[in-house]
Write a protein that binds this DNA or RNA. Structure first.
Lengths: 73, 73
DNA sequence: TATCTATGAATGAACG
DNA sequence: CGTTCATTCATAGATA
C-alpha cells in the first residue's frame, strides 16, 4: 500500500514502522522491508528501461556519462 | 582476514599491499579493495542501526491495514 | 523433468 | 560516511 502510495525509498524509521505493522502477520525484519523496496523500485526501472530502449534507440554516437553501469568486462 | 583482524579504513599503502596479495588469485584493482572495505564497514553499521531502531521503537500510531483481506484460497 | 519467471538476498560501484 | 543504484545470485513456484 505504501509503495502504491508513492513511497520508494523509505528511511530507516519508516522501514521500522512498516516492519512493525507487517510483524502482525508473521516474522519479518527491517532488512526484508528494505530489500523489498529496493527490488521493487529497481525492477520498475528495469522494465521502463527495456521498453524505452527498443522504442527510441538512441544514436550510437551518443555517449552516456555518469550513468551507473557496470563495465562489460 | 585483515578486516577480521580489525582493519576498517586502510590507507593507500595498505590498500596497495592487499591488492597485490589478492592479485595472485585474479585481476583486481585498488579501488575494488577500497570499495570492499567501505561497503563492509557501512553495512556493519547499517545492521547496528536497524537493531537499535527496533529496540527503542517509538510508539507507533496504530494504523489499520487491510481490514478486508482476500482469503488465501 | 526441463525451462522459465518472479522475487528475496546480496554485493560492487558510485552518489551527495 | 550514509545512502542509493545496478547487477547478479539463489531458489521456489509456475509452465510446458
Amino acid at each position: 500500500m505504501m509503495y502504491r502510495g508513492g513511497m520508494r525509498t523509505p528511511n530507516a524509521q519508516q522501514i521500522e514502522q512498516i516492519t512493525a505493522q507487517l510483524g502482525k502477520y508473521g516474522k519479518i525484519e527491517g532488512k526484508n522491508v528494505f530489500y523489498w523496496f529496493q527490488n521493487h523500485k529497481a525492477r520498475e526501472r528495469q522494465k521502463q528501461k527495456r521498453n524505452s530502449l527498443v522504442l527510441n534507440s538512441p544514436p550510437i554516437t551518443t555517449i552516456t556519462l555518469n550513468t551507473r553501469m557496470k563495465p562489460i568486462l
